[in-house]
Design a binder for these strands. Structure first.
Length: 293
DNA sequence: CCGCGGGCCTGAGAGC
DNA sequence: TGCTCTCAGGCCCGCG
């Protein structure tokens, strides 16, 4: 499910519940998600304070008073829900706020802030790990990530240099978390459409012979930053599973220009094309064959 | 070494 | 209604 905008939306929702608060009670309601929970998961968290709640790419990172970091990933279908004590006395506001847990509510944090944080993940592609802060560089999952797409380090020169030797499509390159970290299938499709670049174009065409960016590379970088910013403002995209932590839906799906719009007219002004769906490296790609070159 | 396809899971929706 | 099939915001691993 969640790409960078959805994870950032979740982070902002969890922050007031978790940052500066202590884990009073932790419950792991099954032995594993995608991976087994870390040894003594509950004991290692209970009593610790969350000193900061950050995000790297699609990973949520809760800094702990012990010097460790609780790394959380939502996989395809993970979501967090926050119930504040005060909400419990406001009947009817949240349908699953009756205190009963659902089938796929796998982890529950009772925080000293008075918030109950529940992690739900039907497909269980998500996971939680505890890593020593100093050893984050040794964690390949994190250490190998490319730059944050919304950070200054992600620019046309960097993207061109990273793509110049790639023997793959620009679509596949942008999904590669080692090139740029945080994009997924939706936002790659949307950014390529905004930049009028065909997803089938070779990634190395983003660079000239010297490895410098060509003109369209800068347009692509701008398109990526803009679409991610717009999506964050909208609380992410809710297709199936994504919810904001208060249970509300994100609404960026209403702003999709191509994703899941096969057959619809291309929204580019004056373009006569219709959106097509193809499959690239096993994933659906939506694009306009007329205005994306 | 690199790129691709399969697999991990469950559930929703389409088609019969 | 109910079955079967396909597909889904991600990522790791093994194969060629």
């Amino acid at each position: 499910m969640p790409e960078l905008p959805e994870v950032e939306t979740v982070r902002r929702g969890l922050q007031p519940a978790m940052e500066g608060a202590r884990f009073d009670k932790v419950e792991a309601r099954r032995p594993d998600l995608r991976f087994p929970f870390p040894e003594n998961f509950v004991k290692r968290l209970e009593g610790q304070t969350v000193t900061g709640l950050g995000r790297r790419a699609k990973y949520l990172m809760a800094d702990l008073s012990s010097g460790e970091v609780l790394v959380m990933h939502l996989g395809m279908s993970g979501s967090f829900h926050v119930l504040h004590d005060a909400d419990a006395s406001t009947p009817g506001r949240f349908h699953h706020d009756r205190g009963k847990l659902g089938n796929h509510d796998h982890v529950v944090f009772r925080m000293s802030s008075g918030a109950t944080v529940t992690f739900n993940d039907p497909r269980r592609f998500g996971f939680m790990k505890i890593i020593e802060r100093g050893k984050m560089d040794e964690e390949p999952m994190i250490a190998l990530l490319g730059p944050e797409p919304l950070g200054n380090a992600f620019d046309a020169a960097m993207l061109a240099a990273a793509c110049r030797d790639k023997k793959t499509s620009v679509k596949a390159a942008l999904l590669d978390q080692q090139i740029v970290a945080g994009l997924g299938n939706i936002y790659v499709c949307e950014a390529l459409h905004r930049a009028h670049i065909s997803p089938k174009r070779m990634a190395r065409a983003l660079a000239n012979r010297k490895g410098e960016p060509v003109e369209r590379t800068a347009l692509l970088v701008d398109a990526i930053k803009l679409v991610l910013q717009d999506a964050i403002k909208a609380g992410g995209s809710s297709l199936r599973d994504h919810r904001q932590t208060d249970g509300d839906l994100g609404y960026f799906q209403h702003s999709f220009r191509v994703y899941d719009r096969e057959g619809e007219p291309c929204p580019t002004p004056k373009c006569t094309g219709a959106i097509r769906r193809i499959v690239q490296t096993g994933r659906s790609t939506f694009y306009c064959p007329v205005c994306q070159k």
